[in-house]
Design a protein around this nucleic acid. Structure first.
Length: 121
DNA sequence: AACTTGACGAGGG
DNA sequence: CCCCTCGCCAAGT
């Protein structure tokens, strides 16, 4: 089945991102896994760069727990500042603890033993 | 149709 | 911790 049929692939990404609670984050790769077929971290990133809509884009970060907004038109610190304002804590290297702040959509919570292996590194 | 570019990620050195 | 390589896939030239 192709999720991209009814709604565009962009809409599917936004739909999930809009569900991320305040103070929580998801990674590009995790979104790709949740979206399934055809999606990769790369394409999710591509989709997110055009999300000037009502999506909390700041809650999507890379798998290392950092904000990778390296070559954007927006200030480098903006994303981290927005997240910190929501309660996400970053260390001196600009990294946050995914084990603490990463959010999982319904049905995608990691099981007890395989906790960290799947969605995080 | 071929080639290049990314708001990526895992693996290796 | 940093850097590089490769795989990935949509978009723009």
């Amino acid at each position: 089945m192709n999720i991209v049929n009814d709604r565009t692939y962009r809409e599917c990404v936004y739909e999930i991102v809009r569900q991320i609670p305040v103070g929580k984050v998801m990674t590009y790769g995790q979104l790709a896994i949740v979206l399934g077929e055809g999606y990769t971290a790369r394409t999710v990133g591509y989709v997110m760069h055009g999300s000037d809509e009502d999506v909390p884009w700041q809650r999507v970060i890379n798998s290392q727990g950092k904000c990778s907004t390296g070559r954007l038109t927006i200030p480098l610190n903006l994303q981290q500042e927005l997240l910190e304002a929501e309660g996400v804590v970053f260390n001196s290297s600009g990294k946050c603890d995914l084990a603490k702040f990463q959010w999982f959509p319904d049905g995608f919570e990691p099981k007890e033993d395989e906790q960290v292996s799947l969605f995080q590194q």
